[in-house]
């Protein structure tokens, strides 16, 4: 009975008693959720275009952030370093298309998936070779990102909003919406959807597979750069950041691998869900449950919607 009370009553009493902490938790979840959504979007775009789960998305976050900070350390001004990093990510997308995807056309999806494993370890090695393994401080203020916090005395306590988190939320939201609109409403977006439906049919109507692949990998690179800047500013730029990117996995399970709205809504559900779970129910289980709670939430949703929240329902008749 006591246990039931701790699970079903106590947390809600706490929420009512300390609404400032509830709002703070929701805010932290929202910030994390939007960043998860952004990472998930990188995965979704590549999955839609090439049917491959890009395991390298995490290391792309690290690689992009390290390139930016590394260039700045070499004396390149911050905005020029940003522009050069975008160029590097384009170069990476182009190389991936030429050296990895093109030779593997018509190979089973699992081969492409394994190739992204290879790409991951190649980028880890290349990153360490060029930039070393030492953590670096993100050049947030040089890029004009705000520092400090806004402390609001309200709801019987205080709510602290980090300015960098506000900026991250705004930038990530704008990116997510822009990408969603771009891929839903533009000619390239329609081409991407055609490629996702059928490579052969897309080719037959004159859509260039190669061009689409470069565009989505480049877009995934930009997403990785934005994530690296935001998360790097919250902590530091190190190879540990690639683990964060894998937090997008439960988002994808929940939202569906092919749905852009799914990535957005899934990111928010996972972000807010894991923070609420860790804060209100975590202490019951000894805390530190955040690492698996996200998967639990995703699996719970799958019980009712096996294709994910917005995933396409595939019905095969036999």
């Amino acid at each position: 009975m006591d246990v039931l009370h701790h699970i079903f009553v106590d947390p809600f009493v706490q929420m009512a008693q300390a609404p400032d902490l509830l709002v703070q938790t929701l805010w932290e979840g929202l910030v994390g959720g939007i960043l998860y959504a952004l990472i998930a979007l990188g995965f979704v775009l590549i999955f839609k275009a090439s049917g491959v789960f890009n395991f390298a998305q995490g290391i792309m976050v690290v690689f992009a952030a390290l390139t930016l900070v590394g260039l700045h350390e070499k004396g390149v001004p911050a905005y020029l370093a940003l522009a050069l990093t975008i160029l590097v990510m384009f170069g990476l997308a182009f190389s991936v298309e030429r050296l990895m995807l093109r030779p593997l056309v018509n190979q089973p999806d699992i081969i492409l998936f394994m190739a992204t494993f290879g790409l991951t370890y190649f980028l880890i090695g290349l990153g360490e070779l060029i930039f070393g393994g030492e953590p670096k401080v993100m050049i947030a203020s040089e890029l004009g990102l705000p520092k400090g916090s806004i402390d609001l005395n309200m709801l019987g306590g205080f709510i602290s909003l980090q300015k960098i988190d506000i900026a991250a939320t705004i930038i990530a939201s704008v990116m997510v919406v822009s990408l969603a609109v771009f891929f839903q409403k533009t000619r390239i977006g329609r081409a991407l959807r055609a490629v996702a439906d059928s490579h052969k049919a897309a080719l037959s109507v004159g859509i260039s597979l190669e061009q689409i692949w470069v565009i989505v990998w480049f877009t995934a690179g930009i997403v990785a750069l934005a994530t690296g800047i935001m998360w790097g500013a919250r902590s530091e730029v190190s190879f540990a950041l690639q683990i964060i990117a894998l937090k997008a996995l439960p988002v994808l399970i929940l939202g569906g691998f092919t749905s852009i709205p799914g990535a957005i809504v899934g990111g928010l559900i996972i972000g807010i869900g894991e923070k609420l779970g860790e804060f209100y129910w975590g202490p019951l289980l000894g805390s530190g449950i955040e690492s698996w709670l996200a998967y639990f939430i995703a699996l719970l949703f799958l019980l009712f919607r096996p294709q994910g929240l917005f995933g396409e329902r595939i019905i095969e008749r036999i």
Partner: peptide, 8 residues
């Protein structure tokens, strides 16, 4: 896995 995600 949460080393850089400690806000909660």
């Amino acid at each position: 896995s949460e080393m850089q995600n400690q806000s909660s």
